[in-house]
Design a protein around this nucleic acid. Sequence first.
DNA 1: ATTTTGTGCTTGCATTTTGCAAGTACAAAA
DNA 2: TTTTGTACTTGCAAAATGCAAGCACAAAAT
Lengths: 136, 136
Amino acid sequence: MTKFRSPCPIASALDIVGDKWSLVIIRSMVVGATSYSDFLAAPERIATNILAERLQRLEAAGLIAQRRPRKGSIRGSYALTTKGAGLIPVLQELARWGQENIPGRWTPPLRFQDARPADHAIGGAAGEGLRPAEPG
Amino acid sequence: MTKFRSPCPIASALDIVGDKWSLVIIRSMVVGATSYSDFLAAPERIATNILAERLQRLEAAGLIAQRRPRKGSIRGSYALTTKGAGLIPVLQELARWGQENIPGRWTPPLRFQDARPADHAIGGAAGEGLRPAEPG
DNA sequence: ATTTTGTGCTTGCATTTTGCAAGTACAAAA
DNA sequence: TTTTGTACTTGCAAAATGCAAGCACAAAAT
């Protein structure tokens, strides 16, 4: 289990995903990465040992899940859980801040900007497409 | 200067504030901390060498500024710059996620939940009090 | 059927970051 | 003119990260 520095929700959230790589991995998942090699292909060049360890930790923390492959086939693919997808608004705010305050940053793809937690969590509304914000 | 892992705005934002302590320090400032000893008094118990180094880095990165004391008096106090205050929405999303997903977290004070970047940046609308969101 | 390729890791060791305890500088208060 | 408080610095231990290489195992190629 993670040990928390304090009962502060911010400090505690950072105790779970506040290392150098966790949020970068989750970002990759939001834009479509599902396999080990997908994560390695990201431009930040994470080391293989760290990726493997981080995937384990994120799974243990319940932020991602490995979809077990259909009987007797290849390895599973990774997907965000509801808990993990709940971090999408954090990533979107970080992206906004980065774009506004650091010159030369990429503009994230629309599927990132428009991402909603409910559309990314396993068991979520996959395949429903984007709707306008619900009134009320 | 900070070296960036990639031109991704998320990864780059994390290259600036993605260490274990920077966002915790900024959080303390949002809820009122302005001095070295204020930061040390936070429940997370940051080590003094790390605090000193982090304050320097945050100042060098333009996220905080030391207000020079009135002529010939004590040391200056720290305040968020516009750039630093721009991270407030990131902190608020982290706090929301922490509260929703980690049992037993504190509820942040109202002055944190209602904080707006413009009210915290130096040169911002200090002393104006909270207004409802502007229409349009 | 047996090399070859691709994917998903593990291992060993160097480097960097963080943590802990103690000490220092310097102004204000006693 | 000691004492106190604030703001650090220093030295060393521990943990996290980075790098290069190797390994297992399945699928594809020969």
